[in-house]
């Protein structure tokens, strides 16, 4: 309660046209400068908010991809070892083994830009320039047959790209779990053992003693 009163009181002061630049409440923290904010703001949204100036083509992206990405993701984005594939898998989401890639699963091309810039290449993150990132993303979209070979990505064109699975996501309105008093006696369930982890034998060896 006391905290809320303090907050309301400070809000009143601010509303009265006081020191808007001063920290409110407990007075902790210091104002962040526009330059500090700009230097840390790398997040990109589907509407394009956050995309910087610059551009990159599919052809430029191919060279960068071979240099920075192919060692883990394969020459054509097919993946390598347990590193994920970046293409293929379209139409596989109902299969026994769905393949989730930019072309088959990712809903937004802007997310590819955001992720490549912030996290890739693995072990050398945030080393690509904005132009290079646009180029790599353009190439990845081309690998997935989403854009033509002459596509050039920039802050205007990238948010306009529609990925095949853009409409493939939804939010559940109500929980789908059972609710209420469960069965306690003579419940009609199968108690037949149909699978044993020991038979599959993929558990790491463990020193027991």
């Amino acid at each position: 309660m006391a905290r809320w009163r303090t907050f309301a009181w400070v809000s009143l002061l601010l509303a009265a046209g006081g020191a808007a630049a001063q920290p409110a409440g407990l007075g902790l923290g210091r104002p962040a400068t526009p330059a500090e904010i700009a230097a840390w703001s790398i997040a990109v949204r589907p509407d394009g908010q956050g995309l910087p100036a610059g551009k990159g083509s599919v052809a430029e992206g191919e060279q960068l991809y071979l240099q920075h990405c192919a060692a883990c993701h394969g020459e054509f984005g097919e993946g390598a070892g347990r590193f994920p594939a970046l293409m293929s898998g379209q139409g596989s989401l109902r299969d026994h083994d769905p393949v989730k890639t930019i072309g088959s699963y990712w809903p937004y091309a802007t997310t590819v830009w955001d992720y490549v810039f912030r996290s890739m290449p693995f072990g050398n993150a945030q080393s690509l320039t904005a132009d290079e990132t646009y180029a790599v993303v353009a190439y990845l979209l081309h690998l997935n047959d989403v854009v033509d070979a002459d596509f050039v990505a920039d802050a205007k064109r990238l948010p306009a790209v529609r990925l095949p699975n853009a409409a493939g996501f939804f939010e559940l309105a109500e929980p789908d779990l059972p609710r209420g008093e469960p069965c306690m006696r003579d419940c009609a369930v199968s108690t037949r053992v149909i699978g044993r982890a020991r038979a599959i034998d993929v558990t790491p060896e463990r020193r027991l003693e």
């Binding site: 109902r94 990712w106 809903p107 997310t111 996501f169 559940l172």
Partner: peptide
């Protein structure tokens, strides 16, 4: 609005039998 980051789209979404995913 949400940022639709890789961790809440490509990952940490729950693929259902009809091929759509809960986010």
């Amino acid at each position: 609005q949400p940022w639709q980051t890789r961790e809440e789209t490509a990952k940490y979404t729950d693929l259902m039998p009809d091929g759509r995913a809960r986010r």
